[in-house]
Simulated scan of single mutants.
Amino acid sequence: MAMVRVYPTTTLPRFASTLSLRKTKFMVKSSNLQLQMQSNDSHKLVLEVKEKLEKEYHSLPFGRNGRDDEDMILWFLKDRKFDVEEAVSKLTKAIKWRQDFEVSNLTEESVEDVAQTGKAYIHDFLDINDRPVLVVVAAKHFPKVHDPADDERLCVFLIEKALSKLPTGKEEILGIFDLRGFGTENADFKYLTFLFEVFYYYYPKRLSQVLFVDAPFVFKQFWRLVKPLLKSYASQVRFCSAETVRKEYFTEETLPPNLRD
């Protein structure tokens, strides 16, 4: 009679566990390898754009935010879904704009007069998602009183300041428009369009979300005219109350001062 060897019941589970562990390790290694390959491919495209800019647009400035800034090149490649030609086209326009607008020359002192109105500022604290916060107090904006060029310089300076506050690993900022007290004298079609166009063309995918806080009826009428011009950024707008901002975006200690009441 043939003998039948009976294995302990723990053998199969141990064997299955070993297979599972090996499979997990293999998946982790495969994932890491895939990320490394993607990173290598991205770097090759960065170098391709960099070389193209050097050959065809050598008159553009170089250095930080210039034609050889690899971080900036990578960001525009991501925005253009790694299409080299489209990235080059959008990037050259952005670099030229920065040069013409003299972005590198903007300082606290250069925008001091318009900043003192309190119409816009960068909040001292991040929101609960670790995003720098750009706050606009619409009731303090009077387009017939202030020079539009000063308002535009303040806008760009504050965007730059917000981006400089990005924590490691974070890439986007939050915009808050406090619309309490907004009236027809505060409506500024040109300025709002400028703001969104700057983000779309020169700071792509840097604006995570825009909160329109306690918008009165008169603003909603104004928004209907502006919205079609804002392309994909219009979908990032959320109309909400000051109470919602307090509860969902900040702690009691980190709430922007103008939203405390």
Rank of each mutant, 00 (worst) to 15 (best):
E112G: 00
K93Q: 13
K78A: 06
F101D: 06
I95F: 01
Q99N: 15
L106S: 04
L91S: 00
W97P: 05
V88G: 01
N105R: 15
F76C: 14
T92R: 03
V111P: 02
E109I: 05
A94D: 01
K78N: 05
V111R: 00
V84R: 02
A94M: 12
A87S: 09
F101Q: 10
E102L: 04
F101W: 03
A87K: 04
R80E: 10
V103I: 11
K93T: 09
T107Q: 04
N105G: 13
V111Q: 04
E85S: 14
E85R: 11
E85M: 02
L106H: 05
V88T: 07
F101R: 11
V88E: 00
V88Q: 03
A94N: 10
W75A: 11
K78L: 06
R80Q: 11
W97I: 03
D79H: 03
L106W: 01
D100N: 15
F76G: 11
S89H: 14
Q99D: 15
E109C: 02
L77G: 03
R98C: 15
R98I: 13
A87T: 05
S110I: 02
D83V: 14
E109G: 00
L106M: 06
K93S: 12
F76P: 12
V88D: 08
D100A: 15
F101P: 09
L91V: 01
W75M: 10
K96N: 13
V111D: 00
W75V: 02
I95W: 01
L77N: 05
S89V: 09
L91W: 06
D100H: 11
T107H: 02
V84S: 09
L74T: 08
R98F: 14
V103R: 08
I73N: 02
I73G: 04
I73M: 07
F76V: 10
E108Q: 13
N105I: 00
F76W: 15
S89Y: 11
E102A: 03
E86F: 10
V88S: 00
A94W: 03
E108Y: 13
F101M: 12
F76R: 13
W75C: 08
L106F: 07
L106E: 03
E85F: 10
N105Y: 11
W97A: 00
D83S: 15
K78R: 14
E112I: 01
F76A: 11
S89R: 15
F76K: 09
Q99S: 14
V88W: 07
E85Q: 13
D100Q: 14
R98V: 14
F101A: 07
V84P: 10
V84N: 09
V111T: 05
T92A: 07
F82Y: 13
W75Q: 12
F101C: 10
E86G: 14
K93N: 11
T107R: 02
L74I: 10
E85A: 12
T107Y: 07
I95S: 04
F76Q: 13
K93H: 08
E86P: 04
D100I: 11
E108V: 08
I73Q: 03
I95H: 03
L77W: 02
T107M: 07
W75D: 04
S104D: 15
V111M: 06
E102Q: 09
F82C: 04
R98Y: 15
D79L: 06
R98G: 15
F82N: 01
S110D: 00
L74F: 03
